Amino acid sequence: MTKAWFGLWMVLACMQVWAQALPLPPLVQPDGAINPAWRFVGFPRQHTELPPTRFEAGSADGVAGVQVLTASSYGTLVQDTRGLAPARLQWRWRLDQPLSGGKANADILTKAGDDAALKVCVMFDHALDRVPFVERTVLRLARSASGESLPAATVCYVWDSTHPALTQGANPYTRRVRFISLQGRGAPLARWVPESRDVAQDFIDLFADELPQGPATPRDAAPAVTRVLIGADSDNTASTSRGWVADVRWAADSR
């Protein structure tokens, strides 16, 4: 192999690695502590009085994971990544106590009830020129006010005890966040549930109105992933909840 061909091969190899999002570090380290690679992000700095959601490493029924506890609070654990989503995002979660005891009923379709006892979200580097003008302007202002590089598109998978499973919609505060409730009303509590999602296809389905119209959109039309997060919030309803998340990982296989 000549030097020129070898150099080209190296470039192509690097591009292939870049094309897929980096592996996600484990949530829990071998010593039983939360992996510091997952950083805590709370509400924007102008709302620092809002209590943070608590994340505690532990185990439930022999499964090591992160316990997520809310009490009129908000918070996420975020992993920064970059690249096109592999075939599937997989994780396990369980809800021990749904949102309860608050001043309002939880309802992710309304502003007053917009809380989630558990969520796993994926943020995308969606092109700003595909975002409607008014929303694009609001997003730029929000980025400036929050000090965070807020994404133009986020897909959230939520555990919701109010609506039926597979309810889909946009966050009532911003259409930059759209969700699917994988577990819904009547889902069993205190039991680990495995999930496996094609996040690129979910992005295409949820943000179809901001993608070119025509024949079926290919899966690789989804933009790069920038972050994966887990979290929970109960600030709108002033309620409490308790759940777990474990084994969040990218999987190249189709299952």
Rank of each mutant, 00 (worst) to 15 (best):
R94E: 07
T76Y: 05
T81D: 07
K119L: 13
T81V: 15
D125K: 07
Q67T: 09
M123A: 15
T81G: 15
L95Q: 02
L89W: 02
V78A: 05
D115S: 11
G102Y: 02
T81Q: 09
P98H: 06
M123G: 09
Q97M: 14
K111S: 15
I108E: 06
L99Y: 00
A104V: 10
A85S: 15
K119I: 07
M123R: 01
F124L: 14
Q90W: 02
K119W: 08
T70G: 14
A71W: 00
A87K: 02
V68T: 05
C121L: 13
M123T: 07
S100E: 06
W93P: 06
L109N: 08
M123N: 05
K111Q: 14
S72D: 09
T70I: 03
Q67G: 12
D115H: 01
L89V: 08
G102P: 04
G101V: 06
V68W: 01
V122Y: 08
A104M: 08
L77K: 00
G102S: 09
K103W: 04
T110G: 14
L77C: 06
I108H: 04
S100N: 13
P86C: 13
V120Q: 01
Q67N: 13
A104Q: 03
C121W: 03
R82V: 12
Y74F: 13
A116K: 08
I108G: 09
Y74I: 11
P98F: 12
F124W: 03
V120T: 04
A71G: 13
H126Y: 10
S100K: 05
V120C: 10
A71C: 06
T110N: 04
R92L: 14
F124A: 12
T76P: 00
P86A: 15
A116F: 03
T70L: 06
A104R: 10
T81F: 09
A85Q: 04
V78M: 03
R92V: 08
R82I: 09
S73G: 11
D96R: 06
W93Y: 06
A87M: 07
G83T: 05
D107P: 09
G83A: 14
K111R: 12
R94K: 09
L84A: 14
L95M: 08
L69H: 08
S100L: 05
T110Y: 03
D114T: 01
R92C: 14
A112F: 00
A71I: 01
C121V: 11
A71R: 02
K111N: 13
S72H: 07
G75A: 13
S72A: 15
Q97G: 13
L89G: 07
A71H: 09
K103R: 12
L84C: 08
V78K: 02
L95A: 10
N105A: 15
A85I: 05
A106I: 01
G113C: 10
Q67D: 03
G83R: 04
